[in-house]
Computed example of a mutant assay.
Amino acid sequence: MRVRGYAPATPCWSVLTSPDPARTAEFYCGLFGWTTTQSEDGATLFLLRDLVVAGVAPSSAERAAWLTYIATDDAEATAAQVAAAGGTVLQPPADLATRGRATLLADPAGAVFGAWQKLRFAGAQVHDEPGSICWSETVTWDIRATAEFYGSVFGWTDQKGTSADTIHEYHEWISFNRVVGGISEMDENYPPGTPHHWRTIFSIDDCAGFITRARDLGGQVPAGPVDAGIGHAAHVLDPTGGAFLVIEVLPELRALMG
């Protein structure tokens, strides 16, 4: 689906921070059929059908990680709200050439995310179709504390997920009567001490084939395919350690989504 803009308090942009951006780009281009281009400020952008779908940036960390940005009309105000609510401003707002004004943040439990104030670039230009991001969610040990923090910063409310199962509790983020993301509760299936984090989920059209391709390209698949209720899903690690999920939505549900 072509996207031309995002309302405030909506996940709008995702960047993979990687210790080896070149290796990372090779993997994802082979996996999703993406190509790359350079932005005016030197950032590497992934393209799907010549539309910007995500980005990749160098990192000094040992492992790659996907970073979710939330749209805002005022990056300074959002950073101040995060600090007032008990979070941390890891990088203060700064312009990325004329693309946008960005700030790097963490919630009180340590989950890292960003806020993106549009200048010339609003965020991903394609969403919720095979090869693009379809969902972003906070993964937490404490749903209530997480909901209180993000509610105070972005005005989100939360509701029990419409596709929630009996395995673990799942909630959805609501902004201006729209579902914009999710909150996934960690349980005994997660290793003790797994940090709170934001998770990026991609839409795909063939989970079994995707898993084979990911392994052939040097990735790992710790879990999947598994029945996620709305389709078949898999947990994937890229060759530099970046974790993400993919889901092949059931055809009847995909038809309802448009």
Rank of each mutant, 00 (worst) to 15 (best):
D187L: 14
T146P: 04
G181T: 03
V226L: 05
R215C: 07
D142E: 07
H171Q: 09
I211S: 13
I167H: 08
V226T: 07
G231Y: 00
N177I: 03
S184Y: 07
A228L: 13
I211R: 07
V139G: 03
K160A: 03
P192S: 08
E169P: 10
E169K: 13
D142I: 04
K160I: 10
N177Q: 14
S152D: 10
D187Y: 11
Y150G: 00
G218E: 04
A164T: 08
I143A: 15
V179I: 10
D227N: 13
V139D: 11
D216P: 08
I174F: 11
F176I: 05
E185K: 14
G193L: 13
G193V: 04
M186W: 05
G231D: 06
G182E: 05
L217G: 02
W173I: 01
T140C: 04
Q220K: 15
R213P: 11
T162W: 15
S184L: 12
D158V: 12
E172W: 12
P191T: 12
A223F: 14
A164G: 06
V139R: 09
T166P: 01
D165F: 13
G182S: 05
S152I: 07
E148C: 12
H196M: 10
W173M: 00
G224N: 01
I204R: 00
V153T: 02
I167V: 11
A164W: 09
W135N: 08
K160E: 11
E172V: 15
A214Y: 14
S175T: 02
T200Y: 14
H197Q: 08
F202L: 08
T162E: 14
A147F: 07
T140F: 06
Y150C: 02
M186I: 08
R213V: 00
D158Q: 08
V226A: 01
V180N: 00
H171C: 13
H197M: 05
G193P: 07
T157G: 09
I167W: 14
T200L: 02
Q220N: 15
G151Y: 10
G182Q: 08
H196W: 09
G231V: 01
S203L: 06
T200W: 10
K160G: 10
F149E: 02
Q159R: 13
G209Y: 06
H196A: 13
V180I: 07
P192G: 03
T140D: 01
V179T: 05
I201C: 14
P225R: 07
T162Q: 12
I204G: 00
H171A: 08
G231F: 08
G209H: 01
G219I: 06
A214I: 13
P192V: 13
V226I: 03
D142F: 12
W135I: 05
